[in-house]
Design a binder for these strands. Structure first.
Lengths: 268, 268
DNA sequence: TTGCTCAACTTGTTTGAACAAGCTGACGCT
DNA sequence: AGCGTCAGCTTGTTCAAACAAGTTGAGCAA
């Protein structure tokens, strides 16, 4: 039976909020007040059913709300747990090409410096350029590109995926880009040795909820968005690579350090 | 009655996916295939109930899934609509202090250049520094700061909120920061006129699901994350401001253009 | 002690029903 | 023609019940 929520009640204020939202609001408040600290467990659905005089389904609706806000997680047989946050800082404005090797190693050193254990799987493909990549690389759509793909973990927790596309003309100059394994000295350094130096890049950052594929690959729980980071690298004003990085939003933060003096001359 | 989903069925593959997920997957596929283009409406819950031979609640679970993925929206009385995307580019690496005025105006000109109509509300507060702000401004926690708050719209659609904190010592030098209205020439330019020039900044970017407050202020629908952008501005290596910007993730993309030459000298 | 089983918890999935409430167009009245 | 009402669509909220399935610890057997 439908039971209209009291319109004038509660703490005296008008509150014609639906019951499931009252549940969510109450629990959210208690979590932020520290009654349920990160890592702790919430009362079971049955307990909450009693406490709020609501059906189990209604309580579940409220809990679902908090799950999709990224505040709590649920596991069958275990209960609901308050999510604890731990972010990894990602310094994006640093240039890797002087004393630092490239990608894999920038990541490796960063992670190790943080006292964590890095791990990654690697894959190389030949692939026709997707439209957005082709546009950024200034090549024909569906023209051949080399795709170097990385799946990265920190302490065996999936952290990010990275797909770097190289245009065909560059691969002709730098054939080792098609090597199926990691390039020991780093691709940036390898390219620099061939006289192709990444002199600048253009970064685009956006966010959205993960696709089912991303959810699987990054083992993401509900209510956590991804950070999408696209870096287009240039040498002599010509695009030489385009890197799409997908980062778990709950684990990563990106940093840029920019100085006015450095940028003064290149007013866009 | 509980009815176990067929284990060997469908297209011949093992598929012991729960029914509500089958609904979500089928619809997601049809949306990405273009059967339901952005802006179009999905069949009603009743139609889907028939099509999938499931109860209305099960169909709703599947639809909820897509809503929280940010793929569709629902409106009472109207139905489910496929979300259409339109992003606004935000050039974050540009320096505003040469020929461009500050914040409000960088935003105003950007929006107008895009052929859109900007609009913002403004507020000034005196507020004790929150811990994270105090740390970034290198002042005592809870010491006095001036908070200048902006609520921004594009074509009357809520776009972002921006809160800039100035430390007390700076306000003593630049009293107009407490003026309740907009500073016509822009705060950066006003400060530069007093010999305080923002020579660099440190940006931090992260993402998460919005809080209920943010959902209300930015009129966000379910399944859309926010982009959090923290900019700490420096003059002579001393923090002079800290700006927290909350951006609707479905409407914004941030860009950084960085050149190696510019950054070569300031290896951190 | 070790190891297995199982009862008793937990959340996950599904159904059917009922009523609330927003939206739209048809119909009929003025 | 103009306007208001309302039937009939839509999604939103809530309930009660049942069975599925993951987790854990108590207790029994080897």
């Amino acid at each position: 039976m439908y039971q209209r929520v009291a319109r004038v009640r509660d703490d005296g204020r008008m509150s014609k909020q639906p019951k499931y939202r009252q549940v969510a609001d109450a629990l959210r408040r208690e979590i932020s007040d520290g009654k349920f600290p990160p890592g702790s467990r919430l009362p079971s659905e049955n307990d909450l059913t009693e406490r709020f005089s609501a059906s189990r389904n209604t309580v579940r609706s409220g809990l679902m709300q908090l799950v999709s806000e990224g505040l709590i997680t649920s596991s069958q047989g275990l209960g609901y747990e308050v999510r604890s946050h731990e972010v990894f800082e990602l310094n994006a404005s640093r240039f890797e090409n002087l004393s630092f090797p490239q990608q894999g190693d920038a990541y490796n050193t960063d992670v190790r410096n943080a006292g964590r254990h890095p791990h990654q799987t690697f894959r190389v493909e030949l692939k026709p350029a997707p439209p957005d990549i082709a546009e950024r690389l200034k090549v024909e759509p569906a023209s051949t590109t080399v795709l170097r793909f990385c799946h990265r973990f920190v302490d065996d927790v999936p952290w990010s995926t990275q797909a770097t596309y190289y245009p065909e003309w560059l691969v002709n100059k730098a054939p080792r880009l098609t090597e199926p394994g990691d390039i020991a000295e780093g691709t940036t350094r390898y390219l620099a040795g061939l006289g192709i130096e990444q002199a600048g890049y253009f970064d685009e950052i956006s966010t959205r909820m993960p696709t089912p594929d991303e959810t699987r690959l990054l083992e993401m729980s509900a209510g956590v968005p991804v950070l999408l980071w696209t870096r287009t690298g240039y040498a002599d004003d010509r695009p030489i690579r385009c890197t799409l990085t997908t980062l778990r939003g709950d684990l990563n933060r990106m940093n840029y350090e920019v100085s006015a003096l450095a940028n003064r001359d290149e007013s866009q």
